[in-house]
Protein backbone atom coordinates (compact mmCIF):
# COMPACT_ATOMS: atom_id res chain seq x y z
CA UNK A 1 0.00 0.00 0.00
CA UNK A 2 0.95 3.58 -0.44
CA UNK A 3 1.21 4.19 3.27
CA UNK A 4 3.71 1.40 3.68
CA UNK A 5 5.58 2.63 0.65
CA UNK A 6 5.75 6.10 2.17
CA UNK A 7 7.11 4.62 5.37
CA UNK A 8 9.73 2.67 3.47
CA UNK A 9 10.62 5.78 1.48
CA UNK A 10 11.14 7.69 4.69
CA UNK A 11 13.35 4.94 6.06
CA UNK A 12 15.32 4.89 2.84
CA UNK A 13 15.76 8.65 2.94
CA UNK A 14 16.99 8.43 6.51
CA UNK A 15 19.47 5.74 5.57
CA UNK A 16 20.66 7.58 2.48
CA UNK A 17 21.04 11.05 3.92
CA UNK A 18 22.00 10.01 7.40
CA UNK A 19 21.60 13.46 8.94
CA UNK A 20 22.84 14.26 12.39
CA UNK A 21 20.32 15.20 15.02
CA UNK A 22 20.68 18.81 16.15
CA UNK A 23 21.76 18.82 19.78
CA UNK A 24 18.90 20.99 20.95
CA UNK A 25 16.45 18.57 19.37
CA UNK A 26 18.15 15.43 20.61
CA UNK A 27 16.19 14.92 23.85
CA UNK A 28 12.81 15.29 22.14
CA UNK A 29 13.29 13.21 19.04
CA UNK A 30 13.07 9.81 20.74
CA UNK A 31 9.88 10.78 22.55
CA UNK A 32 8.44 12.20 19.37
CA UNK A 33 9.27 8.99 17.55
CA UNK A 34 7.56 6.92 20.21
CA UNK A 35 4.52 9.17 20.10
CA UNK A 36 4.42 8.87 16.31
CA UNK A 37 4.70 5.13 16.66
CA UNK A 38 1.71 5.19 18.96
CA UNK A 39 -0.22 7.26 16.45
CA UNK A 40 0.70 4.91 13.62
CA UNK A 41 -0.40 1.84 15.53
CA UNK A 42 -3.59 3.62 16.47
CA UNK A 43 -4.14 4.42 12.82
CA UNK A 44 -3.59 0.82 11.80
CA UNK A 45 -6.01 -0.32 14.45
CA UNK A 46 -8.60 2.18 13.38
CA UNK A 47 -8.16 1.12 9.81
CA UNK A 48 -8.67 -2.50 10.68
CA UNK A 49 -11.66 -1.51 12.73
CA UNK A 50 -12.93 0.38 9.77
CA UNK A 51 -13.10 3.72 11.51
CA UNK A 52 -10.07 5.31 9.96
CA UNK A 53 -10.25 8.96 9.15
CA UNK A 54 -7.63 11.01 7.38
CA UNK A 55 -8.07 14.22 9.22
CA UNK A 56 -8.30 12.52 12.55
CA UNK A 57 -5.11 10.64 11.87
CA UNK A 58 -3.20 13.72 10.83
CA UNK A 59 -4.39 15.76 13.76
CA UNK A 60 -3.77 13.03 16.30
CA UNK A 61 -0.38 12.25 14.83
CA UNK A 62 0.81 15.81 14.99
CA UNK A 63 -0.72 16.57 18.33
CA UNK A 64 0.67 13.39 19.86
CA UNK A 65 4.16 14.25 18.73
CA UNK A 66 3.90 17.86 19.78
CA UNK A 67 2.39 17.12 23.15
CA UNK A 68 4.97 14.47 23.89
CA UNK A 69 7.81 16.80 22.98
CA UNK A 70 6.18 19.60 24.92
CA UNK A 71 5.89 17.48 28.03
CA UNK A 72 9.52 16.53 27.81
CA UNK A 73 10.50 20.12 27.21
CA UNK A 74 8.47 21.20 30.21
CA UNK A 75 10.09 18.49 32.28
CA UNK A 76 13.50 19.68 31.19
CA UNK A 77 12.64 23.20 32.22
CA UNK A 78 11.35 21.97 35.56
CA UNK A 79 14.37 19.80 36.15
CA UNK A 80 12.50 16.51 36.01
CA UNK A 81 13.03 15.84 32.33
CA UNK A 82 14.32 12.31 32.81
CA UNK A 83 11.46 11.20 34.99
CA UNK A 84 8.86 12.92 32.87
CA UNK A 85 10.15 11.46 29.64
CA UNK A 86 10.14 8.07 31.30
CA UNK A 87 6.54 8.65 32.26
CA UNK A 88 5.65 9.67 28.74
CA UNK A 89 7.31 6.60 27.34
CA UNK A 90 5.42 4.41 29.79
CA UNK A 91 2.10 5.95 28.87
CA UNK A 92 2.79 5.70 25.17
CA UNK A 93 4.00 2.17 25.64
CA UNK A 94 0.78 1.20 27.33
CA UNK A 95 -1.21 2.72 24.50
CA UNK A 96 0.94 0.99 21.90
CA UNK A 97 0.39 -2.31 23.62
CA UNK A 98 -3.33 -1.72 23.67
CA UNK A 99 -3.39 -0.83 20.01
CA UNK A 100 -1.25 -3.78 19.05
CA UNK A 101 -3.51 -6.05 21.08
CA UNK A 102 -6.52 -4.74 19.17
CA UNK A 103 -4.71 -5.23 15.86
CA UNK A 104 -3.78 -8.73 16.87
CA UNK A 105 -7.33 -9.56 17.81
CA UNK A 106 -8.46 -8.26 14.51
CA UNK A 107 -5.91 -10.11 12.43
CA UNK A 108 -5.71 -13.42 14.27
CA UNK A 109 -9.04 -13.46 16.05
CA UNK A 110 -7.12 -14.20 19.19
Amino acid sequence: MIAVLALIAGVALGIVFHPTVPPELAPYLPIAVVAALDAVFGGVRAKLDGIFDDKQFVVSFISNVLVAALIVYLGDQLGVGTQLSTGVVVVLGVRIFGNVAAIRRHLFRA
Binding site: A3, A6, L7, G10, P19, L29, P30, A36, V58, F61
Partner: peptide, 20 residues
Protein backbone atom coordinates in the same frame (compact mmCIF):
# COMPACT_ATOMS: atom_id res chain seq x y z
CA UNK B 1 -0.37 14.59 4.56
CA UNK B 2 -0.62 11.12 6.04
CA UNK B 3 1.88 9.82 3.55
CA UNK B 4 4.18 12.70 4.32
CA UNK B 5 3.82 12.08 8.04
CA UNK B 6 4.54 8.42 7.63
CA UNK B 7 7.60 9.17 5.56
CA UNK B 8 8.71 11.65 8.19
CA UNK B 9 8.09 9.04 10.84
CA UNK B 10 10.26 6.49 9.11
CA UNK B 11 12.87 9.12 8.48
CA UNK B 12 13.08 10.25 12.09
CA UNK B 13 12.96 6.66 13.28
CA UNK B 14 15.99 5.78 11.23
CA UNK B 15 17.76 9.00 12.14
CA UNK B 16 17.17 8.37 15.80
CA UNK B 17 18.33 4.78 15.58
CA UNK B 18 21.42 5.84 13.69
CA UNK B 19 22.27 8.65 16.07
CA UNK B 20 21.85 6.31 19.02
Amino acid sequence: LILALLALFGFTLVVQLRSN
